[in-house]
Lab assay of single mutants.
Amino acid sequence: TYYTVKSGDTLNKIAAQYGVSVANLRSWNGISGDLIFVGQKLIVKKG
């Protein structure tokens, strides 16, 4: 599943929405910090 980042989104918010961990979101998307951008597509695997 792909999720497109919207204004106001955070990794924590997206992780909670999908029932996954922030660590997994980072791993699946090659993100090291907490910086995400509006319009960015993130890979999300269902929890």
Rank of each mutant, 00 (worst) to 15 (best):
K46Q: 15
V22S: 08
Y2D: 06
Y18A: 07
K6S: 12
L25I: 10
G8C: 06
N24V: 12
Q40H: 05
V38Q: 08
Q17N: 11
G19R: 10
Y2F: 11
K46A: 15
A23K: 10
G19P: 02
K13P: 02
V20D: 03
V38H: 07
K41V: 15
T4F: 09
L11V: 07
D34L: 07
K41G: 06
N12E: 13
A15K: 02
Y2L: 09
N12F: 14
A23S: 11
L35K: 12
V5A: 05
D34P: 05
K6M: 11
I31L: 15
R26E: 06
W28L: 06
N12L: 15
A15Q: 02
G8R: 05
I36F: 06
T4K: 08
V5E: 00
L11T: 03
Q17T: 13
S32F: 11
T1C: 06
N12Y: 15
N24F: 08
T4G: 03
N29L: 01
K6A: 10
N24Y: 08
N24H: 12
K41L: 15
L25W: 00
G8T: 06
N12K: 13
L35C: 10
S7P: 13
K46W: 15
Y18W: 14
T4M: 08
I43S: 05
K6Q: 14
K45W: 15
A16F: 13
K45Q: 14
K6N: 09
G19A: 10
V20E: 08
V22G: 04
S7K: 12
D9C: 02
A16Y: 10
I31F: 08
Q40L: 08
V5N: 01
L25V: 06
V38M: 08
I14V: 08
G8S: 06
V5P: 02
G8Y: 06
T10S: 10
N24S: 14
S21G: 06
Q17E: 13
Y3L: 04
I14N: 00
Y18L: 11
D9A: 02
V38K: 07
Q17L: 15
S32V: 14
N29P: 00
V20P: 02
F37K: 08
L25P: 00
V5W: 05
L11M: 08
L11S: 01
S32N: 14
S32P: 10
V5D: 00
K13F: 12
G39T: 04
V20T: 11
A15V: 03
G47F: 14
K6G: 09
T10W: 03
S21R: 05
I31N: 03
N29H: 01
G47W: 12
I31Y: 03
R26V: 09
G30I: 08
Y2N: 06
G33L: 08
A23Y: 07
Y2E: 10
N24P: 02
S21H: 07
S7F: 11
Q40N: 05
